[in-house]
């Protein structure tokens, strides 16, 4: 039993993954005064995002069964956060990392991953994440023995990290209070793993997936399933509801979280909280109260784009 979870002594950076704080949001849903809303701060992971969890589990499971050895290069396609997680793990555990990302990922992502010694391959920005998926498959097919390709979109270790980690921690923190879980879909790993565990809980928790309302959207990290390569781990029958959230709702909520809660988060988190507020308002109407949990995927500073006059800076 660890009493001081955040100040505990750890053997390595890998042990710092998970055990993230769960904080109560106040005044964010004035129309749902009887509903508690909690946000799980996944940016407290060492790589700065929720993706440390699946990345660590995919790497550890592959090391256990011999798919990943020190002579292999880990390669995957990523919009960035999984890439940061792989990069820090490669550096800490001693394997090389190559990442395929669309050329228009934020400069911060490119710089952070390269700081760990990772090599980047860029795919066509017009093809988005799907272009990166197609390119990594081509690279691996040409040299299958050279690489360990975890394929986060189809790897069962991805949702398992959330089944054991994220969901276990939420239940430990809230027990039977929790009535709803809400989160956005990227690979869908967070949604699938957490939902499976929360559905086993008694009383059963209602689990809602947030999806961008439109195909062309600005909720970086989230996937509009109807217009994308659908991740093999995504099983829509597992979730109780799919809730569309517009880019504007997500962005406005990110601004509100910064201004009123002291939480500067990315736009996918804004979309998650916007979805959680909608669910809270419904819970207030239908049952007079409730307890809604959602996820802060990462911090907003990861999306700061250099201003025009800063573009030529080098440090």
């Amino acid at each position: 039993m660890t009493r001081y979870a955040r100040s505990r002594r750890l053997a390595s950076i890998l042990d710092a993954v998970g055990n993230t704080p769960l904080i109560r949001l106040h005044g964010i849903a004035p129309n749902a005064p009887g509903v508690e809303i909690y946000l799980k701060l996944e940016f407290a992971n060492p790589g700065g995002s929720v993706k440390d969890r699946p990345a660590l589990r995919m790497v550890q499971d592959a090391m256990k069964d011999g798919r990943l050895t020190s002579d292999k290069i880990l390669i995957d396609s990523t919009s960035g956060n999984t890439g940061v997680a792989y990069s820090l793990m490669g550096a800490a555990m001693g394997f090389r990392v190559h990442l395929v990302m669309p050329k228009n990922v934020t400069k911060a992502r490119k710089d952070i991953t390269q700081a760990f010694g990772t090599e980047l391959v860029f795919s066509d920005p017009m093809e988005g994440s799907d272009g990166a998926i197609r390119l990594v498959k081509k690279i691996v097919a040409e040299n299958p023995d050279k690489y360990f390709y975890p394929d986060q979109y189809s790897n069962p270790s991805n949702p398992l990290a959330h089944y054991y980690g994220t969901a276990g921690e939420i239940i430990d923190a809230l027990g039977d209070r929790i009535t709803h879980f809400v989160t956005g879909l990227g690979t869908s790993g967070t949604m699938m793993g957490t939902t499976r565990r929360l559905h086993e809980h008694t009383p059963r928790v209602t689990c809602v997936a947030v999806e961008p309302a439109e195909a062309l959207h600005g909720l970086e990290g989230l996937k509009h399933m109807g217009s994308s390569i659908v991740p093999p781990i995504w099983d829509p029958s597992t979730v109780d509801e799919i809730l569309p959230v517009t880019t504007e709702e997500g962005w406005d909520m990110s601004d509100l979280l910064a201004a009123t809660q002291g939480l500067h988060v990315g736009h996918s988190t804004g979309a998650n909280v916007a979805g959680a507020v909608k669910i809270a308002e419904r819970a207030q109407k239908e049952r007079g109260g409730g307890c809604v949990v959602t996820i802060a995927c990462d911090r907003g500073d990861r999306y700061f784009a250099p201003l025009k006059w800063e573009r030529k800076y080098v440090w």
Binding site: K51, S77, T78, S79, G80, N81, T82, M101, P102, N104, V105, P125, M126, G128, S129, Q152, Y153, L185, G186, T187, P212, L216, H217, G218, L219, E220, G221, L222, K223, H224, S228, P231, K308
Partner: peptide, 25 residues
């Protein structure tokens, strides 16, 4: 946004790109 927005003038042969956000993972 760093040009003249919708009033940005185009010479023949210019390419306009609509660049999507990056989704998922």
């Amino acid at each position: 946004r760093f040009l003249d927005g919708l009033d940005t003038k185009l010479a023949s042969g210019t390419e306009i790109s609509i660049v999507p956000a990056i989704a998922g993972g």
